[in-house]
């Protein structure tokens, strides 16, 4: 057992861990941070993505001992005001239907936030390449890409409302105009 001290989503923890404990298992099983999930064994799916000292990593491919002294942010810690105000990326995923079963969503959101930090105004292609390390089996990615671009616009302080970015708009007579972003 090795002792580690970490801050996770703003709270400090001190724990003994086996060296082989993966960061994601430490988060889920020792801290009860079950918002972060495990989807594969080979670091392909990205469902376990968290931020380690501000950078997106796959927490299934980092040992918990390696996070000693670090700051970890999970999906449970990205909303501000103690969870009262959703992160713009969270909000955009909801608004633009960027999730279905939601299993990949925590990792997808964490990767997207990381992408937008580096590139605040990505093209569609840049978004697609920016989240290439995260697999989604439900959405076909199109609404995820739209969501990331809409969140980017909001984070840049631009008003959203590009009708081209609206899912379903014009696709059916039944579709109502998209609600305005609050």
């Amino acid at each position: 057992m090795t002792q580690i001290n970490v801050r996770v989503d703003g709270a400090s923890y001190s724990d003994d861990v086996e060296p082989r404990t993966l960061l994601v298992h430490y988060l889920r099983e020792q801290l009860g941070k079950v918002g972060t999930v495990v989807g594969c064994d080979t670091s392909n799916c990205g469902a376990c993505t968290v931020h380690l000292d501000g950078q997106a990593v796959k927490s299934c491919t980092v040992l918990a001992v390696q996070a000693d002294g670090s700051e970890v942010t999970t999906i449970e810690g990205v909303a501000s005001g103690g969870g009262a105000t959703l992160h713009p990326v969270q909000r955009a995923f909801h608004e633009l239907h960027g999730l279905q079963c939601g299993f990949c969503t925590p990792g997808m959101i964490m990767a997207s936030i990381d992408l937008l930090k580096e590139n605040p105004d990505p093209t569609e292609t840049e978004v697609r390449e920016g989240i290439e390390g995260n697999l989604c089996r439900c959405t076909g990615y199109q609404n995820i890409v739209r969501a990331v671009q809409q969140a980017a616009a909001e984070m840049r302080g631009e008003a959203p409302g590009d009708p081209g970015a609206s899912p379903a708009a014009g696709d059916t007579a039944a579709a109502e105009p998209m609600a305005a972003q609050s």
Partner: peptide, 26 residues
């Protein structure tokens, strides 16, 4: 309501990591 592009009720727990996957159960 039928025909409206209602945002999903399910999303609130899924985008915040507050979901109840079976493996979360202890």
């Amino acid at each position: 309501e039928v025909g409206k592009a209602r945002r999903r009720k399910e999303d609130a727990r899924l985008i915040t990591g507050k979901t109840t996957w079976t493996d979360n159960m202890v």
